[in-house]
Write a protein that binds this DNA or RNA. Structure first.
Lengths: 204, 204
DNA sequence: GGTCCCTTCTGACATTTGTCATGTCCGGCG
DNA sequence: CGCCGGACATGACAAATGTCAGAAGGGACC
């Protein structure tokens, strides 16, 4: 069988991307065929090179790893996606899996392990770092309704209720009700603390 | 002359650290003598190995790069410090330079350039990524008094005024005055937006 | 010594919030 | 069909927040 795995690397940090490319290239069966620094660029590169596995950073300018994964799923169903992330928020893992991502690992793993995981994913299996999986299970599902989450997101930059209401095309009273219920569901003291909590858990 | 530069690498992301170590080791005149994943660990390693140059990530558990740099300055004055960071907030650069850091670069540079910069720093020169320097100059100095900054920081997690007052040992009225002046100085709509702005500019 | 500015406080006020009760409308489910 | 929960609204009240004026002490600088 043709054993060589063709890789796409996407990470906005050139230093990391280059270093990673160099390290992974040391493995005989791994070949980096494309690199990208942004979400859209990753997509374009994937179209052009049709890699076997796409290794995506979760946080990139333009479109985050999960969004890219969703697009890839549709356009290149044979391309397996592996997400690499600095800080692993539980909710992100869930969204990533829902987007058809096959692997999810923090940047704290060694290059050796990453290479192994790439092979695992390429073989059609899934791999999720156990610790992240445990966090995700512990954090559970988001208790917020989609509307509550939406309003909370609009509240994220400290905007007053009036502005949120306008941007969400809702009445101020409704916004306050959603905010209020979100705050109580999250056990926060006010909406700003609620935003923080939801962020930490990847629910926004 | 003994040309080899002895390096300490500190970054909490094993993947990056390992990759960086591998890449920098390819250079004949660079030698990685120690690695660390946390601030305190970096300090301990530096004491044990007395490297020529310490390459520190800005964000690490335990103590951030700037704090480590400050300690190093005192304990190992001959050790040059180079800070590497993902997101370069203007204020961080200023704090870093004040702490005696000799170099400040974003992770978007290539390994080649990093190697060159390490040599530059080792030679006793300073190096700051021009783009970051421009940002820092554009952002200017923090207009906040130390007290305002302190109170703003305590407000960062959405705590109510009463709690901030208690933690800062101030009266609630004073806290509200500081908050109010900070908000107006930053041109924000409320203190939460002010926290966001101050964060972006590295003023907290 | 006078003049700023920072720190700290108080009190009062308008505005913004968080909370609650209550109501309508709609879609899904047994 | 009847019930329930979610989306959406209103109105009212209490609490938190933002704003202002004023005042006192202290350090820095001319």
């Amino acid at each position: 069988m043709t054993d060589v795995v063709r890789l796409l690397l996407a990470d906005d940090e050139h230093l990391i991307r280059g270093a990673l490319a160099a390290l992974l290239s040391l493995e005989d069966d791994l070949l980096v065929v494309a690199e990208a620094a942004t979400g859209p660029e990753a997509l374009a590169m994937a179209r052009a090179h049709a890699p076997d596995v796409a290794v995506l950073d979760l946080q990139m300018p333009g479109a985050d790893g999960v969004k890219v994964a969703t697009s890839l799923r549709a356009e290149l169903p044979d391309c397996r996606v592996l997400i690499v992330t600095g800080h692993g928020r539980p909710g992100h893992l869930k969204r990533a899996l829902a987007a058809g991502v096959r692997g999810f690992v923090p940047k704290t793993v060694s290059a050796q392990r990453l290479a192994e995981i790439i092979r695992t994913v390429h073989a059609g299996n899934r791999y999720v770092e156990p610790e992240l999986a445990a966090d995700a299970i512990a954090a559970g599902d988001s208790p917020l309704t989609s509307r509550e989450a939406e309003v909370l997101e609009l509240a994220a930059d400290g905007a007053p209720v009036a502005e949120i209401a306008e941007r969400a095309a809702l009445s101020q009273g409704t916004v306050r009700n959603y905010l209020s219920s979100a705050v109580s569901k999250l056990g926060a003291g006010n909406r700003h603390a609620a935003v923080r909590l939801a962020r930490e858990r990847g629910w926004v």
